[in-house]
């Protein structure tokens, strides 16, 4: 239930698909049989990639933790400008056995530096998003040897939690920051971090639920509890023959003082003809509490 590429496209960036429509389906299954998930993403670029719309359905189930499933449906838009990319997302999750509904709104910015020059996220789209006087810079004029990107994402999630005296609204304000360095479009390393602020003090008695609306590097499975802050690293390496590997690790601290470690990676393959396939492994570990692992398979096709 997670794919670095889909996340990159939806949350932090990633080259827009040149095709008219891309559909991606990912499935995740836990080795212990308790966890199942799926992630379906459809991407549609318009106006030469200046806008990109996305629809996404995320489902997961901890069969040994709560009955039923957790579902989240969201829609996103990305507007690429010459000096910055702007993205937004709204989503909703219907009630389930562990909580009432939640709604989320997300906004983000991504700045891309080619050397020391600020430019578009996708150099190929420079001509389509150029606004200043004179001719647009040619894509090859951007120095792609070292590309630095800075990203910030804010997510406001309105959780409705069943409490002793009725429904309690917990507003989770999540800030995420990313610094990514990419070398010759082949090797990419990102440092990430972020934190949460809540609208009120979450004293004991507030129900703990599984959350998966925030994307963490290497975070394939849902996290149990209310996140406090995190730091993570993400790596991507292009190989040969259309293969590449990507991986991530996150150290996540929770409000109850617990620490969670998330790690995962995928082997990706682009054989051509619009196809994409990936296989991965994700791991979630909470010291002296539980450890879970899950494998993932993904398939995407672009028309």
């Amino acid at each position: 239930m997670r794919l670095l590429l889909a996340l990159a496209a939806m949350a932090f960036g990633g080259a827009p698909p040149a095709s008219a429509l891309t559909v991606r389906e990912s499935a995740l299954a836990g080795t212990s049989g308790g966890y199942y998930g799926s992630d379906t993403v459809a991407l549609v670029p318009i106006l030469g990639g200046a806008y990109q719309f996305a629809a996404r359905a995320r489902v997961f189930r901890y069969r040994d933790a709560f009955p039923g499933t957790q579902e989240e449906y969201s829609a996103a838009v990305r507007r690429e400008l010459f000096h910055v990319s702007v993205r937004g997302r709204v989503g909703t999750a219907p009630p389930n056995a562990q909580r009432a509904a939640y709604h989320l709104a997300r906004g983000g910015l991504l700045f891309t530096f080619y050397g020391l020059t600020l430019g578009p996220e996708d150099a190929e789209s420079a001509g389509g998003v150029w606004e200043a006087e004179g001719p647009a810079p040619a894509p090859e004029s951007f120095d792609a040897a070292w590309v630095t990107s800075l990203g910030v994402v804010y997510t406001n999630t309105n959780h409705h939690i069943e409490a002793d005296d009725g429904i309690m609204v917990v507003v989770q304000n999540t800030w995420q920051f990313e610094l990514r360095e990419t070398w010759r479009e082949r090797t990419s390393l990102a440092l990430m971090g972020g934190g949460n602020r809540y609208n009120n003090v979450l004293e004991h008695g507030v129900k703990t639920v599984y959350l998966n609306q925030i994307d963490y590097p290497g975070g394939g499975m849902a996290v149990r509890g209310w996140p406090n802050n995190y730091a993570g690293v993400s790596l991507r390496q292009g190989l040969w023959g259309g293969f590449s590997v990507s991986g991530g690790w996150t150290r996540l601290s929770l409000l109850d003082g617990q620490l969670e470690s998330l790690a995962g990676g995928e082997l990706e393959w682009r054989p051509g003809g619009g196809w994409f396939a990936a296989a991965g492994w994700f791991h979630r570990h909470r010291r002296r509490v539980e450890t879970r692992g899950a494998g993932s398979l993904s398939l995407a096709y672009s028309w």
């Binding site: 010459f82 000096h83 606004e131 200043a132």
Partner: peptide, 14 residues
């Protein structure tokens, strides 16, 4: 009180 404002980047889209 004192305050200083600097505009390091100014373009039509940012």
């Amino acid at each position: 009180r004192w305050g200083a404002e600097y505009v390091p980047f100014d373009a039509s889209d940012l």
